[in-house]
Computed example of a mutant assay.
Amino acid sequence: MEIGVLTMQRGEVSRFLYSPAYAYGALGCPPLIPPSATVLFEMEILDFLDTAESDSFFALSPNHQAIFPLEKVLEVATTERKFGNCLFKRNRFDDAKDRYKRASFYLSRLGKSEEERRQLETARLPVNLNLALTYLRLERPRNSLEWGEKALAIDNKNVKALFRCGQACLELKEYEKARTFLLRAQKLEPFNSEINGELKRLSRYFFYL
């Protein structure tokens, strides 16, 4: 199956017929697959990410990574971020975090010009936001706040960053800081139901203080 899938292209539908020796053998898989069954699999490639170039880049020494063209660095960082997104959607938050951290590592280089620095910051922002959200899912609000503040260092009016920092502070029981972040977010998006919902939840804690 692995060999067959490697021959397929995005959007392709293929059927693979396997003899018992390559399927479930003499025992089968009761109650669905009888003993010694020849099995037909139909598979469709919905999408895929080619991480070979990213893996090769990660294996290079820091000196070799430093001389890579910025365009290539941005490409491999984007691949890592997209891979992280796929893992996040499958609730594999710890694995997603590792891919986002790799993307962040790639983007940590210093730009040689103002334009390069701008491109790197533009690429860092979604990675920082993704890490802030992922750490919330991992119930590690201190790390979430760290990455949310890194996102705000790039764009201090980013609503997602303000919201996630507010959520992290709420989990950390730092209620004044949570209120400050959430009110800043609400000022930018006054009708955002998620922001208003968190402010409502926060108000209960102030009631008991």
Rank of each mutant, 00 (worst) to 15 (best):
residue 4 G to M: 07
residue 4 G to R: 12
residue 6 L to K: 12
residue 10 R to Q: 10
residue 10 R to G: 04
residue 11 G to V: 05
residue 12 E to H: 05
residue 13 V to N: 14
residue 18 Y to I: 02
residue 22 Y to H: 12
residue 23 A to C: 03
residue 23 A to T: 03
residue 24 Y to W: 02
residue 24 Y to S: 04
residue 26 A to M: 11
residue 27 L to T: 14
residue 30 P to G: 04
residue 33 I to S: 05
residue 41 F to G: 10
residue 42 E to C: 01
residue 45 I to Y: 06
residue 45 I to E: 05
residue 48 F to V: 01
residue 49 L to N: 06
residue 52 A to T: 08
residue 56 S to A: 15
residue 57 F to K: 02
residue 65 Q to E: 04
residue 68 F to M: 15
residue 68 F to A: 15
residue 68 F to L: 14
residue 69 P to F: 00
residue 72 K to S: 09
residue 75 E to S: 14
residue 76 V to D: 08
residue 77 A to H: 03
residue 78 T to E: 15
residue 78 T to Y: 14
residue 78 T to G: 14
residue 79 T to F: 00
residue 83 F to T: 11
residue 83 F to E: 08
residue 84 G to R: 06
residue 84 G to L: 08
residue 85 N to M: 10
residue 97 K to Q: 12
residue 100 Y to S: 08
residue 102 R to I: 03
residue 102 R to M: 09
residue 103 A to Q: 01
residue 107 L to R: 01
residue 110 L to W: 05
residue 111 G to H: 00
residue 112 K to V: 05
residue 114 E to W: 02
residue 114 E to I: 10
residue 115 E to G: 06
residue 117 R to K: 15
residue 121 E to F: 12
residue 122 T to C: 02
residue 123 A to D: 11
residue 128 N to A: 05
residue 129 L to M: 13
residue 132 A to I: 12
residue 136 L to E: 09
residue 137 R to H: 13
residue 140 R to T: 12
residue 143 N to K: 14
residue 149 E to P: 00
residue 150 K to V: 09
residue 151 A to L: 02
residue 151 A to R: 05
residue 151 A to I: 05
residue 152 L to P: 04
residue 152 L to N: 04
residue 153 A to Q: 10
residue 154 I to D: 07
residue 155 D to A: 01
residue 156 N to E: 15
residue 157 K to E: 15
residue 158 N to E: 09
residue 158 N to Q: 08
residue 160 K to T: 13
residue 160 K to P: 08
residue 162 L to V: 09
residue 164 R to P: 04
residue 164 R to L: 10
residue 169 C to Y: 02
residue 169 C to M: 12
residue 170 L to D: 14
residue 170 L to T: 11
residue 176 E to C: 03
residue 177 K to F: 03
residue 178 A to E: 14
residue 182 L to F: 02
residue 185 A to E: 03
residue 188 L to E: 13
residue 191 F to A: 15
residue 193 S to G: 08
residue 194 E to Q: 07
residue 197 G to E: 12
residue 198 E to Y: 11
residue 200 K to Y: 08
residue 200 K to S: 06
residue 201 R to H: 14
residue 202 L to D: 08
residue 203 S to R: 00
residue 205 Y to I: 02
residue 208 Y to P: 00
residue 209 L to R: 13
residue 209 L to D: 13
